Measured scan of single mutants.
Amino acid sequence: MGMPNRKYADGEVVMGRWPGSVLYYEVQVTSYDDASHLYTVKYKDGTELALKESDIRLQS
């Protein structure tokens, strides 16, 4: 078993793309699913969504 190939840690605050949009919002990573390679993130309004790594970026 190798290390999970994840870029962002639980609790890390990053920018997540809103689905169907080009806009990124501040989100907190809450979990990562090794099987689906999706991150569960929480937006400031409390919305929780699963995002692909390509829809997440570090805060500038």
Results as ranks from 00 to 15, higher is better:
Ile56Cys: 02
Ser60His: 13
Trp18Glu: 05
Lys42Glu: 06
Pro19Glu: 05
Leu58Met: 13
Glu12Tyr: 04
Thr40Asn: 09
Arg6Ala: 04
Tyr32Ser: 00
Thr40Leu: 12
Ser31Pro: 00
Glu12Pro: 00
Gly20Lys: 05
Arg6His: 06
Lys7Tyr: 05
Lys7Cys: 06
Gly11Lys: 04
Ile56Gly: 01
Lys44Asp: 06
Tyr39Met: 01
Leu23Glu: 13
Tyr25Glu: 08
Pro19Met: 04
Glu53Thr: 04
Gly46Ala: 04
Thr40Phe: 10
Lys7Asn: 06
Trp18Thr: 06
Tyr43Ile: 07
Asp45Trp: 08
Pro19Thr: 03
Met1Asp: 15
Ala35Thr: 14
Pro19Ala: 04
Asp45Asn: 09
Thr40Cys: 09
Arg6Ile: 04
Leu49Thr: 07
Tyr32Gly: 00
Met1Val: 14
Gly20Gln: 07
Pro19Gln: 05
Ser36Leu: 11
Gly2Gln: 11
Glu48Ile: 15
Tyr32Asp: 00
Asp55Cys: 05
Glu26Arg: 07
Gly11Leu: 05
Asp55Ser: 06
Thr47Tyr: 07
Asp10Ile: 13
Gln59Cys: 13
Lys42Asn: 05
Lys44Tyr: 10
Asp55Met: 06
Leu23Gly: 09
Glu53Lys: 02
Arg6Gln: 09
Tyr8Ile: 03
Val22Asn: 15
Tyr39Asp: 00
Gln59Gly: 11
Thr47Cys: 08
Asp55Ile: 01
Arg17Met: 07
Tyr39Ile: 02
Gly11Gln: 04
Thr30Ser: 09
His37Trp: 06
Gly46Cys: 06
Ser54His: 11
Leu49Ser: 07
Tyr39Thr: 01
Asn5Ala: 12
Leu51Gly: 00
Tyr24Thr: 02
Met1Arg: 00
Glu26Ile: 12
Pro4Asn: 11
Lys42His: 07
Tyr43Leu: 15
Val41Lys: 01
Leu51Trp: 03
Tyr32Cys: 01
Glu12Phe: 04
Ala9Asn: 10
Tyr32Lys: 00
Val13Ile: 15
Gln28Val: 15
Met15Phe: 13
Ser54Cys: 08
Thr30Ala: 09
Leu51Arg: 01
Pro19Cys: 05
Glu26Ala: 08
Lys52Pro: 14
Asn5Val: 14
Thr47Ile: 09
Tyr24Ala: 02
Glu12Met: 11
Leu51Ile: 10
Tyr25Leu: 11
Asp10Pro: 07
Asp55His: 07
Glu53Cys: 03
Val14Pro: 01
Asp45Ala: 02
Leu51Val: 06
Pro4Cys: 09
Ser60Ile: 13
Ala50Gly: 07
Val29Leu: 02
Tyr39Trp: 02
Glu48Leu: 14
Leu23His: 13
Tyr39Phe: 02
Asp10Trp: 03
Gly11Ala: 04
Ser21Thr: 15
Lys52Ile: 09
Val14Ala: 05
Arg6Met: 02
Gln59Glu: 11
Gln28Tyr: 09
Asp34Glu: 13
